[in-house]
Amino acid sequence: MYEKVFESTKQAQPAQSGDSWYYLVYMSTWDTFLAQSIWEWSRVFRDGTRVKFATTSGGYAMLARVKGFPAYWNQWTGKVHPAFEINGLPNPNEVLNPNWDIGYSLGPSTQVGKFIDDVNQVYLHQPNVNRIDLYDLENGQKAGEINHNAGEYFASLAWVQPGQVTGLCRTSGKVRIMDYLSSPRVLESGRIEPFKVAAYDSAFHLFFAIGTDHKARVYCREAWPAALSAPVFEPATVYGLKANRVKARLTGQDGEPCPDWWVHWELLGVGGNPPLGYLDRLVSKTDKEGWAKNFYFGPDDISAGQSRIRTWGVLY
């Protein structure tokens, strides 16, 4: 689970009763989010402030575009149009896919997000809940695929940085960050809470979601710790008069590593006896794989017995 840094008290909800959000895309020039519902287009800010500025009209489905912009797919023509930077409305004068009309079965929907990279001429389509197909915009041919095994369609596919997108699952909250350009594969996995619509803030690298309770939630791209493993020796046999490497791993809810957290170490005796030997450090910081490392020095005489190593982390 990614660390939630903000949850709004404001409710970002469409004005009309019965209306609900369909799409959400980060607009990098606005540094805020463009939300589309059945009847309105609004700007939604990170604190949950919502400002309606337009009424939707049929025929356009929103999808994310390279560099943190929305684009609009017209289901009748199969063309994808960019959005105006000023007001986010579709610009019918420009077409991002002049060489290949994206057919009805490949277009975006409220349940299945799509993504267009008109700079590198790639279109991302989800044929099933575990895979993304990469299409060449020049000719409409499939050029590659990413197996992400999320088990659910990504309701949002959003731009992260050049060559990377993130997929966000509405029901499970699963998140995948994927390379779609140089070597298509999953780079990072995580989770946020289930949501109604969500997007990726490519300026500050945040996940932004509006929940079914209409609250806005902001998650930074760092896993929140959920478990600290028991310390393990490496190698497993411990010797006296030697620096024995010992390590413990801090992980998130789904086993994702939690780097840069302090882990505290303490050596305890067993059965009322004082501890044998000593630890090199009382605190150590987790590395990028979530491992906190330390050394245990066995007793420098020939005494034998048992000691316990206790580890803990403080979450702030």
């Binding site: 840094v5 903000f6 709004s8 540094d31 805020t32 604190d47 500050f204 930074c220």
Partner: peptide, 21 residues
């Protein structure tokens, strides 16, 4: 003026950035 929202991890000792509009 929107509320300031932290956009970096809220950790002790960190330099934290907050954004508003």
């Amino acid at each position: 003026l929107t509320e300031p929202v932290p956009v970096t991890s809220l950790r002790a000792g960190n330099r934290i950035i907050l954004a508003a509009h």
